[in-house]
Each structure stands twice: as C-alpha cells, then as structure tokens.
C-alpha cells in the first residue's frame, strides 16, 4: 500500500523545492528598483486607518456575516456526495435534495427579511 504514496511524496518534494528556489533566486537574479508602495502594508496599497477603540478589534458586524457564511457554506457539504451519485439515485434523491435546499432557503428568507444581511 505504501508504495502508492511515493509519487505523491515526490510531487510534494518538487513543489516545495520550486517554492524555495523561487524565493531564493528572486533577490539574486531580479532587478532592484526602490518603490515606497512596496514597503507598505500588503494588498491595499494605502496606509492603514487609525486603530478603532479597544485596540482595533474586528467589528462585531463582521461576526454576523461570518456566522451566516459558515452555516450556509457547510450545508453545501451534503451537495457533494449527492452530486457525485445523483444519476444513480433517481427521483427520490432529487426530491430529498430539493426539500433540503428549500429548508435552507426558509432560513435564508428569515435572515433576509429581518435585516441580517444589512451591513449598517
């Protein structure tokens, strides 16, 4: 059994080697131009705004969005096994899955109507 993992290990080794090689070679081989923007915070390009009160914690609104995301995201776990084999399972499984998605939509309707999706 263990021999079947050898290609995988080999592949992982090549991947790691490539990543290390790229990082090492860039400062040596690449041209060097000074640019202020490159030293700034990653991704946004503009300086961060002043920290919020209490040490710049993530706004609580963020949690609501995150929670809603988790719950709807995880429900889709059941779609994967269904999608793999739905042609073999016929109408019964299709009806079950439609019912399941309807159930999720009921929850969605509640969240939407009661303002759970509004940012402000």
């Amino acid at each position: 059994m263990s021999h079947s993992y050898v290609p995988l290990l080999f592949f992982a080794g090549i991947g790691a080697a490539f990543a290390v090689f790229s990082v090492m070679i860039a400062p040596i081989a690449g041209p060097r131009h000074y640019n202020r923007a490159k030293l700034d915070a990653y991704e946004c390009g503009i300086n961060p705004t002043p920290q919020a009160e209490g040490g710049g914690k993530v706004p609580i609104k963020y949690y609501i969005t995150a929670m809603l995301f988790i719950v709807f995201d995880i429900e889709s776990v059941f779609l994967y096994p269904f999608a793999v084999a739905f042609d073999k399972m016929g109408l019964f499984a299709l009806v079950e899955m439609v019912l399941f998605i309807l159930t999720v939509f009921v929850a969605y309707a509640y969240v939407w109507r009661r303002g759970g999706l509004e940012w402000d």
């Binding site: 929670m67 988790i70 776990v77 059941f78």
Partner: peptide, 12 residues
Amino acid sequence: LFVMVVAAAEVV
C-alpha cells in the same frame, strides 16, 4: 460529514 454540519450549526 454529518458531524461537520452539526458542529457548524453549533458554532453559529
């Protein structure tokens, strides 16, 4: 899979 879904509901 079921445990993951239940755990997510619990997280929320």
